[in-house]
């Protein structure tokens, strides 16, 4: 299986990236190389093996439902690239 430019363009859109034509070519070549390498995993028989998403053998970690102070609004918004006194601002979100 090898990666096409169109595949890469689709993924870029999914990942909200915009690549120039040149970046797209380089990216396609480099990703393809890595994908080819990674495909060696296929040779392993993993039937019956449980996927391991965590190494920590833990479960049922909870916090109690006790209120803690939130950030003051100005501190919350301090890093926002565009804001007014109350909210973050973005180009119009239309529809739903």
């Amino acid at each position: 299986m090898s990666l096409s430019k169109a595949d890469v363009e689709k993924v870029a859109s999914l990942a909200r990236l915009k690549l120039t034509d040149e970046e797209l070519s380089t990216m396609t070549r480099q990703l393809d190389q890595v994908i080819q390498y990674v495909q060696q995993l296929e040779e392993l028989d993993t039937s019956g093996v449980q996927p391991m998403a965590h190494t920590a053998d833990l479960a049922n970690v909870f916090a109690d439902d006790l209120l803690r102070a939130s950030l003051p609004r100005d501190a919350a918004l301090a890093n926002a690239p565009k804001r007014d006194d109350e909210c973050y601002l973005v180009p119009p979100v239309l529809g739903d």
Binding site: V38, L41, E42, L44, T46, V49, Q50, P51, M52, A53
Partner: peptide
């Protein structure tokens, strides 16, 4: 093919 497979190899 990729992610789930890799998680299995991770266990191995």
């Amino acid at each position: 093919a990729y992610y789930v497979k890799a998680l299995k190899v991770r266990r191995l």
